[in-house]
Each structure stands twice: as C-alpha cells, then as structure tokens.
Nucleic acid binder design. Structure first.
Lengths: 347, 347
DNA sequence: ACTCCGGCCGTAAACGTTTACAAGATCCCC
DNA sequence: GGGGATCTTGTAAACGTTTACGGCCGGAGT
C-alpha cells in the first residue's frame, strides 16, 4: 500500500524526460536506446499507469455502466453474461448497478453520468422511460442505450439507441401453441398493468384470442405482481372462479412457478388438466417439475445488441439513433407436452 | 453530449476565483454574498463536478470492486445484494467483475488494483488463494478482503481481511439431521476435490459419519462437478452401485437438483425412499419439488461482513488483519420431511 | 561550409479539481 | 487613527498523464 512509481520516477531513473517515458510506454517512435532504458526502469520499478490521471487527460474512463432493476433476476443475469465479454473485448470495464426497480435510483444513475465516471450506459428501466428519464439522458454527457420501449415523443437530439423485444408477438406464440395442442379455455396471469410489459401483454392476450377466434372472458384474467407468491395467489383466484380452464398463460416465469405450485397443491395434472406457459425463458424454466414451456424474449440477444450499439456509438458520436428489435421464440417443455407426445403446432 | 461547465466557468460567471467556487461547493466558510453568487451560477449552468478530476486530486475514487466467479450463481447474487447497500450507504459505487472462475481473470483484477481505479476489492477466488494471488495482493495498493480460505503462510504485512464459512460444520449439520430422521445409509455427492469447498466437504463427510458411529463406505461416495447435469450423472452412478441408500447429501444445491431429477425419473419417493440435502441454500432450494432442505453457508452474512471489513479498513489503514467466520445453519424443507411430520432433530 | 530536412527529445501546458499560503479586507479595541 | 486579530479571498501548486511545439543534432545536398 505504498505510494507507487509514476512516470516521473521512471524518467529520473532512466535519465530522460517524462515526455519520452510516456511516448515509449505508448509505443510512439523513439531511439532504440531510449526505449530500452525506459522499459528497463519501468520494469524494475514495477510501474503501472494511474488510470485516473489518464482518464482525466484523455477524457475517457474506459468504463461502461449497466443499470438494471434487480441483480437476482435471471433475465438481467443473462444480459450481463452477454454484455460483459463484448465490452471486455473492446477494452472496457463493466460497472453494474442494481436499482431495485426504483425510478429514483435509475435517475440517480442517469444523472451520475454527468460526473463522467463512465463513458456510456446501458439501462433497462422497469417502468418505462419517463419524461424525467428523457431529460436526464439529454443532459447526460455520455451515450445511453435503453433496453425497453422508448416514449413516442423522444427528442431527436437525444441520440439514444434502443433495443427491445416484441412481447406481443411472444404472447401470440404462446397462445398459438396452446391452441395447437387443443386448449380452448386459456387463462391469463398478468403482472401490473402500469408496467410496460404488463400493459403490452394484456393487449396481446386480447388480440391473440381474437385472432384464434376464441372469446375474451374476463373471468379468465387475473392481474398480480411479477413474483412467485403473487402468481400463486392469482392462480388460486382464477382457478376458483373458472375451474374449467385448460391452460394458463403467465406473463413471467416466476408467476408460472407460483401457478405450478397451486396446481400441484390442488392435484391438477400439468399438462394433462392444465397446460402452463411462462415468459422470459429463464434458467428456472428447466428447473421446475414439470419443466416449463416458456416464451424466450431473447434476453441474451438483447444484451449483446445493446453492447454492440453502445460500442458503435462510442466510435461514432453523431450516428443516427438506431433501434434493434429482437424477435421472441418459444421453448417447448414439459408443462405443455405429455410425455411421448411430440410437441404440436407453433414453431 | 456537449462539453460541460467546470469550476472555471462558474468562477467567471460569479466573478470570483476558482478557489472560492471550490470552497463554496464543499461547504467551507465564505462570505454569504459569495456563497449566493456561486451557488446561483452553478445552478444556472447545471454544474456537476467531474469525478475523475476529483479522484486524481483526492487520491480516491469512491469505487469498490467485487470479483466473483459467476454472476449467475445465486450464492454470489446473495452476496452482492448485501454488499451493494452497505457500500452505497458509505458513499461508494460497486463495480462487479465476473471472472468465470478463471484464475487468470482473477489475477487480472488483482493486478488492476494498481491502476488505482478502485479504492478496495472484495474477491472470492474459486480455487483458493494461490501464491500468485498473494503476490498480487501484496503488490496492490488498495485493501483487499478475501471471501474464502487464506493460505497458512499468508505474509503478515499483506493486511488482508478475510471472511469464511465453516463448511465442515455445515456438512455435520446436514448429517446430524439425516441421522435424526432415521437415515443410516447416507450417500454423498461431492464436487471436485481440487476445489477448496470440495476438499473440505469430503473430509467433513468422513468425520461426520464417524462421529455418528456410521461406517464409511466408498460405494456411497461419488465425485463430479458443481453443476446440475453432473449431479444427475453422479446420482445415477451411486444409485446403481448402492441401491439401498436412504439419503443423499449433496455438496451443492445444483448437484441436489440433478439428484432430484434422477430420483423422480427412477420413481423413488423423496423423502420417503431417499431424503436429499443440498448446500448453499440458494433461491433454487425453494423452487424445486419437493422443496430442498439445504445447508445455508450464510452467503448474505458473508457479503455483509466483507463489506463491513473493507469499509473499516478504508478508515484505518494500519489495523491488524481480521478474520470473520460465519457459522452455517440448516434450512429444513420438503426433501427431508414427510408432510405432517414435524422436522426432527438437528438445529 | 552553408542550408535544409528529418528524427528525437525536452519544456510546458492542459485535463478539472483541492488546498497551502499569503495578501487583502474587515473589525475591534485602545 | 493605529495596530493587531480575524475572516475572506486569490494565486499557484499539485495530483499523473498526454501531447503541441520548438530546439538540437546529424546527415545529405549544393
């Protein structure tokens, strides 16, 4: 924990100026003799450049932040897993912020960008991008990539890149699949309608039924939270009200877990009596019993795309904002297929 | 993304020197009139201090890094969940590194400390602290807290704080519990013996049986990896060799998941025919069916303790190194208790 | 021998802060 | 009104880099 050598120390020992030291260490042209002496001195002293001083001078920190709602959520973990290597490859360090879905915290991170402690930010705001978010982004002095929907009236000069998924199409995939395996009374366990995903999935459920020629029945819909226990509560309520359901579409894998708990507890066979589909296709989906058919919203791809966009933007400051849409896909597992039955229909 | 105001800009606008600006912004005494003008100018300009420049001058970054093997591992997630708020409270930002259990990567982080991009580090090396780790830690210019075992010959001057758990005691807890519910042929599915936890758990299993007066039988032990599929393979092998086992002690929750898969597949009732205990008490333990009795190694506590030690050390550079040991505990769930039967024994 | 050119190198400034020091302003008291 | 004490302020240096600029030197061309 002693004070380490600086280029000045090296310069003295090698008998050259600090400018020469810097040049040698950065591989700029120098006489062969100078190079040798500087490198030797640096080596003997165990020199390591001070990244803070370098950042100040270069006006870049080689750090990038990723702000997400919850570090325990497998969706974000999948994103980090993809983002990390891409950034590392490009020479950036990744800072991870867990905002606990607190909009205040999110804004804090966004505002913190102005401190310049980071060259760019990837953020995935849980409840969508508010006007305050937009203001903070415009005021920020670093490029931002948003994972999730942007508001319609996003100012052109914000230069925000965007990655999203099509969760409506995802819901459709699931409904089509359930229809294909013969289900006709398909219940829906949703998350809060004031979240972006919640609202989108609600609409998609309605549209999807219509497209399939099935009636929309309010008794088949229950709204709760995106957690397991809340999913269980919702499932219990729905099953009590509409005992005849033969499938449950869940807005989230966690909700689906809760539903599975309740179905097991009530002795209903999955998928024999009731088929269940989750959403997000997290690691959990393959852990449950039966394993859970789930709509993948491409978390990994979204993460990768976001990292790519950010790096690209860091190269080219003035590029037009870009938006990437990752299509959903359906991973069929035990909760919708009887053993031995080949998975029917969709995809 | 425009170049922002600096204290110089503010000084001009307020008609004072930059020293006064700095003083006012840091709450040092100044004439009331000066304070007002500076604050007004700063506000109008939307000034935000440059954290890099401040770090250079103050020789501190207010950032702390946490290096772990795998961001997807619930054990580390639990640690982060505890570390984050503690550090935040103390005014530090948390940088998260996922080293993928790669010793090279771990060393990279450790060596990176010398760049001074961070004021301190919490690291949890998967395969223990090697001589190279020690060297890097001694050479580092920032305090380090290691979560996990330290080598015996740790140099005194390294000033490394340490947090560990007692996984031997943890194994004993599990064995005692299994014994208490009447199991006498207790199998053991372990992870690699060249990892620190693997070796410790192997020894503890032996000792634990001895303490209970049960014979050690090689046929009841299988070594694999700390993953689910590996756990399944190991369980299959063990069950084939020793069909009479009535309990499986697993070195890890993931291994236990694999074992549950196999038992279900073979139609053996859990816990009726075979009781199962996992280790780490991750979130997964409450997701499975049946839910999994698991030894908690206090990930959360360890994280909290590590953060505490680091903060403390940052206050007091010269303090003697300290070691915290977090005792294990047992969380009893469905995989060792028949419904209706009160959990017996241990604890 | 003079000029010109190119290659290396050192001096110094800059990045945006904080802070030691000394000078100027203000006040109080005699 | 002079003198000291106290408060406030500005100047400048420092943190550790990178880099523009100009100087020096040696060699080549005339």
């Amino acid at each position: 924990m002693t004070e380490g050598p600086t280029i000045t120390t090296i310069a003295q020992r090698a008998g050259v100026s600090i400018a020469s030291v810097s040049r040698v260490l950065n591989g700029l042209p120098a006489r062969e003799d100078t190079v040798r002496r500087v490198l030797r001195a640096a080596d003997e002293l165990g020199y390591v450049p001070n990244s803070v001083a370098r950042s100040l001078r270069n006006r870049r920190t080689d750090q990038i932040a990723f702000a997400m709602a919850d570090i325990g959520n497998p969706v974000y973990v999948a994103m980090v897993r993809e983002i990390q290597p891409v950034l590392k490859e490009a020479g950036y360090r990744l800072l991870i912020h867990s905002t606990d879905g607190d909009a205040g915290d999110e804004l804090g991170v966004l505002r913190g960008l102005r401190e310049r402690y980071v060259d760019g930010l990837i953020i995935s705001p849980l409840r969508g991008v508010t006007r305050e978010h937009v203001e903070a982004i415009v005021a920020a002095r670093a490029p931002v990539v948003v994972i999730g929907a942007l508001p319609e009236d996003m100012p052109r000069d914000a230069l925000v890149d965007n990655v999203r998924t099509d969760s409506r199409a995802g819901v459709r995939l699931a409904l089509d699949h359930l229809y294909a395996i013969g289900r006709r009374r398909i219940g829906f366990l949703n998350g809060p309608l004031d979240t972006v995903p919640g609202a989108a999935r609600a609409a998609a459920y309605r549209e999807g039924l219509e497209a399939l020629g099935l009636p929309y029945d309010e008794d088949l819909v229950e709204v709760g939270d995106f957690y397991r226990d809340s999913g269980a509560r919702a499932a219990r309520a729905l099953l009590a009200r509409a005992p005849g359901v033969d499938a449950l579409m869940c807005a989230n894998d966690l909700i689906a877990l809760g539903a599975l708990d309740v179905l097991r507890e009530q002795g209903r066979d999955v998928p024999g009596d009731v088929a269940v589909v989750g959403m997000d296709d997290t690691d959990l989906a393959s852990v449950t019993w039966p394993t859970l058919t789930s709509v993948s919203l491409g978390s990994a791809e979204r993460g990768r795309a976001a990292a790519g966009l950010l790096l690209d933007r860091l190269q080219n400051d003035r590029r037009e904002p870009r938006a990437v849409v990752v299509p959903p896909s359906l991973t069929i597992r035990g909760s919708t297929t009887l053993p031995g039955t080949p998975p029917g229909g969709a995809r």
